[in-house]
């Protein structure tokens, strides 16, 4: 019954559109099912709580949660109102299940996002569209893509060892490179994450360098830096295995956008005689990197505002790796150029 009621306006709209379109030119009748049933959906969702509106005036004026709590004589039972999730996950059959990480009561809960970054908005409204237009390749309707040979080769020869052997790798390399698919609205290159990395070789004598560098990196990125051990001893560099000598910050989402816009709009313009990022950067799968010296790191506004707190000789330099969803360096560089990163020298793809 409910379904019939829901379908009735739809049927009515179809009938009315049929009768009205008879007199119109054929080109004007270009309509879409989604727009035709828009009013039908409104009918269906009329009772939704989203459309309920604000509560009445007297209800809001009387609502005072703090006063109510203060007036309470007997405290509420802590077992019910101060819920602590279990410390360990004991399997799906255990009666005491932890809440999902998105629940503020969960131990894994991380608040955020706190804002809608300007860079992200500009990407959505401007960069993505332009990038898609720039990268568009036209395939006319009758086009059939020419068939290419398989990327992994067979083992050809008489040797009995070639039987059932896994396929041979490509010529000149032992791994397959990423394929570049035609760019459509589904796979426009976008920023995925940014890694800020710093190796502090002075920390092998004095760990204070590592602590200061950690504070600086946390200040400029807004993310706690994680320290990494050296894997091997290198006698030439005076480095032994298992020493903590490097720091890394992984930035994603909001942090990443704020950090990149800070780098591009504040730090890079302040660097004296800055030439830009080297054009040959990239790992040929869409990840580009550049570095800042310790003097350039000191130009970050978070360090500048509180410069006296950091021992000047302990401020580290850092490498910034930008991971994009592009599958080759050319597309990734196009994206970064749109965002405003300058490149110099020979551009290598």
């Amino acid at each position: 019954m409910a379904l019939q009621q829901g379908l009735r306006p739809l049927r009515r709209s179809i009938w009315s559109s049929q009768s009205s379109q008879l007199g119109l030119a054929a080109q004007q009748s270009r309509g879409y099912a989604s727009t035709d049933i828009a009013d039908t959906i409104q009918d269906l969702e009329s009772a939704s709580s989203l459309r309920a509106g604000t509560p009445a005036e007297d209800t809001t004026s009387q609502y005072d949660p703090v006063g109510r709590a203060r007036r309470r004589k007997i405290q509420l039972p802590p077992s019910r109102y101060q819920f602590r999730p279990p410390k360990y996950y004991r399997g799906p059959l255990h009666p005491h299940q932890p809440p999902p990480a998105s629940d503020p009561a969960s131990r894994e809960f991380q608040p955020g996002p706190f804002s809608l970054p300007r860079l992200e908005q500009t990407y959505q409204s401007t960069f993505a569209q332009d990038l898609m237009t720039l990268a568009y390749t036209h395939f006319p309707p009758g086009y059939v893509a020419p068939t290419k040979s398989a990327r992994l080769r067979k083992w050809e020869g008489e040797s009995p060892y070639y039987k059932n052997r896994p396929l041979r790798g490509p010529r000149g390399a032992d791994v397959l490179r990423l394929l570049r698919k035609p760019i459509t609205f589904r796979n426009v290159p976008k920023l995925e994450r940014v890694t800020v990395h710093s190796m502090i070789s002075a920390a092998k004598d004095d760990s204070a360098h590592l602590h200061v560098a950690g504070m600086v990196m946390q200040a400029i990125t807004g993310v706690r830096a994680s320290a990494f051990k050296t894997k091997k001893s290198v006698a030439g560099f005076d480095v032994r295995a298992n020493q903590y000598l490097s720091l890394t910050c992984e930035l994603k989402g909001e942090d990443m956008h704020h950090f990149l816009s800070k780098v591009i709009d504040v730090v890079m313009p302040k660097i004296k005689d800055y030439r830009g990022v080297k054009g040959s950067t990239g790992d040929s799968s869409g990840n580009l990197a550049f570095g800042f010296t310790n003097e350039e790191v000191a130009l970050f506004p978070e360090v500048e505002v509180n410069y006296d707190s950091y021992p000047p000789k302990m401020i580290p330099g850092c490498h910034i790796m930008i991971h994009t969803s592009a599958t080759n360096d050319r597309d990734a560089r196009l994206l970064l150029q749109q965002i405003g990163v300058p490149f110099y020298g020979k551009l290598v793809n």
Binding site: H138, F139, P140, P141, G142, Y143, V144, P146, T147
Partner: peptide, 19 residues
């Protein structure tokens, strides 16, 4: 001209409404 070139390269002569 670019459509002409692409269509001339097709292995099988498929004709659609557009061509």
């Amino acid at each position: 001209s670019s459509c002409l070139f692409r269509l001339s390269n097709t292995p099988s002569q498929i004709r659609t409404a557009a061509t």
